[in-house]
C-alpha cells in the first residue's frame, strides 16, 4: 500500500484584493474536498514580501504554485474553474 503524496502549495496574493481573496478561498475549498489531511499551503502577500515574488518569478497575483509532488505547476487567477485547476495540478487522476 503506497503512501499518498502530500501536496505543498504556495499562493502569492496582493493584500485583500478581490481575486487574491477569491483564490485563497477556492484553494482552501479544493484542498478540503480532495486533499484532506495531505496538504500544506503557504500564503505570501507580495506587497509585504515583494522579494520572494521576484525570486520565484511571479509576474501576477494571485498565482498558485504546486511545489510537490513534482513536477512544479503554476496557475494564475482566482482558481474558480475547479476542473481546470484539478487537471493542471494533476489532481484529477490522484483524486479518482
Amino acid at each position: 500500500m503506497s503512501r499518498r503524496p502530500v501536496y505543498k502549495f504556495r499562493l502569492f496574493i496582493a493584500a485583500d484584493t478581490l481575486n487574491s481573496v477569491q483564490a485563497a478561498s477556492n484553494l482552501n475549498a479544493l484542498c478540503k474536498a480532495h486533499l484532506a489531511g495531505r496538504h500544506e499551503i503557504e500564503v505570501i502577500d507580495v506587497f509585504k514580501d515583494p522579494k520572494r515574488a521576484l525570486a520565484q518569478g511571479i509576474r501576477m497575483t494571485p498565482t498558485l504554485v504546486k511545489l510537490t509532488p513534482g513536477p512544479e505547476r503554476r496557475i494564475i487567477g482566482s482558481l474558480t474553474d475547479t476542473d481546470r485547476v484539478m487537471q493542471t495540478l494533476g489532481l484529477d487522476a490522484d483524486a479518482a
Partner: peptide
Amino acid sequence: TAGEVDTVFDREGRSFLLQRAQDQ
C-alpha cells in the same frame, strides 16, 4: 488576465496594481 489577476510585475519586480483592484 481575464479579470482573474489583481497585480502584475515586470521583470525588475516593479508591481502594478490594476485599477479595479486598487479601487476595491
